[in-house]
Amino acid sequence: MASSIENNNEKLTLKSSDGEEFLVEKHVALQSTLLQNMLDSDCSSADVIPLPKIDARTLALVLGYCKKHADASSSKQGELNSFDSEFLKDMDMGALFNLVLAANFMEIKGLLDIAAQKIADTIKDKPHQEVREIFHVENDYTPEEEAAVREENRWAFEGFP
């Protein structure tokens, strides 16, 4: 087994889908179960680890999240929570989808949780037409069907056009 995990100063290199390389401290990389398993299974840390599904912009965000969570002690949960909400605050839906994909691929459960929750919360308090646009979902209702569903749930739509 790799004994290198014990050495916090060691770094490894991740390579994004668009070819950018990121030098990451090992204890930060361990936030990802995928990377942890790779290191446990004796991958040489000298190798560049390719992440073909994650672009540089997303990977930078993911590593920012990992660094914050790796560096913070467990007693600073409140600080982490405010970091998390600030981290996602102005993110558009495309970036959130990329984060969910990356968090899922790299197996970073905390990040998957907050990004998926953020996406779900987007649906709250929005008219359904806007939800369709945001998620690029095609409307397959006939106008009559839509009116019927709307009528069934009319209490939910007070205040919406």
Binding site: A116, Q117, I119, A120, D121, I123, K124, D125, K126, P127, H128, V131, R132, F135, V137, E138, N139, D140, Y141, E145, E146, V149, R150, N153, A156, F157
Partner: peptide, 16 residues
């Protein structure tokens, strides 16, 4: 899955 119980009514209007 993380959608609030109330928001599901809005979601139901999005598509079938």
């Amino acid at each position: 899955t993380r959608l609030n119980y109330v928001a599901r009514r809005i979601g139901a209007l999005v598509c079938r």
